[in-house]
Design a protein around this nucleic acid. Structure first.
Lengths: 143, 143
DNA sequence: CTCCTATTGAGACTTAGTCTCAACTCTGGT
DNA sequence: ACCAGAGTTGAGACTAAGTCTCAATAGGAG
C-alpha cells in the first residue's frame, strides 16, 4: 500500500525522497482516518526528523492526486483518509474511526434534482456519512 | 431575522445580552455564508467591543440549536450559514458565497443503500453541494 | 431594587497550517 | 561513478482559528 502511494507519486514526476518514503509507510500502517498531527506524532515517536511542513506538503500532494482525501469530522477537525483515486464517498465510524468507501449509488440523481430546483450549476459535492461500523456495533450494541 | 435568532435564544433560556443582540443583527445583515473572522471584523469595524470568545460562544449556541450551520468550504475553511432548524443541506455558490437550502430530496435512499452495502449503522450525514448560483452564471457565463 | 448567576472581554494559550530560506539530496546527463 | 542544478527538506517564525481562564459586569427573577 505504501508501494502504491510511492508509485503514484513517481508517475506524477515528483522525487521519491527519504521523508516521502517514510511518510508513505506511516500512512500505510494507519487504520482508518488520521490527522496531520497523528502523522507528525508517528514520525516524532520514531525520531525520524521530519518537519511539520513536509507532512503538510506530502498530504497536499496526495490529496491533489486523490490518493488521500480530506474528511471533515463532525467535531470540526480535519482528517485524511487513504483511498482509491476514483470519485466516491466515505463512511466514517464515529467509535473507532474506521473508514469504508461507497461509490456513487444514486447521489447524482439527488444533485441533479437540487440543481433543477435551485438553478445552481453544480460543480462538485461532498457527502460524508457518520455512524458505527459492524465491528463496533457488535462490541457494544445499541450505544 | 435577527428577531428570530433572539427569540429562539430566549426560548432556550439563555440571556438576551447586549453583545448577543448586536451579533444577531450582524448575522442577519450578512448574505450567504460567513466565517467567525468575518463577524469579528464586522464587530470591530463598528467598534463594538466584542471579544473573540463571545463570537465563538454565540456561534456554538446557535449551531447547537440548528439556527446556524457549519459548512466546510472546499478550501478547508469553516463557514457558518444562518438557516432553518430542520434537517437539510446547502448549495454554496463558489463565486459569491450565496447559499441556498435544499431539502432531503432522495438522500435517504442513498444512505440506506450505503448502510446496506457496508453494514454500517448510519447516524448522520453531511451533504454539501458547490457550484455557481443563477446570478453568477449570468454575470460571467461558463467560467 | 437586589442579588445571584450567566455572561462578558482581555489576553494567554493551543492547534492547524503556511512561508521562508539556507542546506541538502535526488536524478538525468555525461 | 560523477556532477550539476532543480526539487525538496527541516527549523522555526509566522498567521489564523479556536479555546480557556478569570475578574468584572449586567440580565432578569423575585
Amino acid at each position: 500500500m505504501a508501494r502504491e502511494l510511492l508509485e503514484a507519486l513517481d508517475q506524477a514526476g515528483v522525487r521519491l525522497t527519504g521523508p516521502r518514503r517514510e511518510l508513505a509507510a506511516l500512512i500505510a500502517r494507519r487504520q482508518g482516518h488520521f490527522t496531520a498531527a497523528d502523522l507528525l506524532a508517528d514520525a516524532g515517536q520514531r525520531s525520524l526528523g521530519i518537519g511539520r511542513a513536509t507532512v503538510f506538503r506530502l498530504l497536499e500532494l496526495l490529496a491533489d492526486r486523490n490518493l488521500v482525501e480530506r474528511v471533515d469530522l463532525p467535531d470540526g477537525r480535519h482528517a485524511y483518509v487513504p483511498c482509491e483515486p476514483s470519485h466516491h464517498h466515505h463512511l466514517v465510524c464515529v467509535s473507532c474511526g474506521a473508514i469504508s468507501e461507497v461509490d456513487d449509488c444514486g447521489i447524482d440523481a439527488v444533485t441533479a434534482e437540487a440543481a433543477r430546483r435551485s438553478g445552481f450549476e453544480i460543480q462538485s459535492h461532498r457527502l460524508e456519512l457518520f455512524g458505527r461500523c459492524p465491528r463496533c456495533q457488535n462490541v457494544e450494541p445499541r450505544q
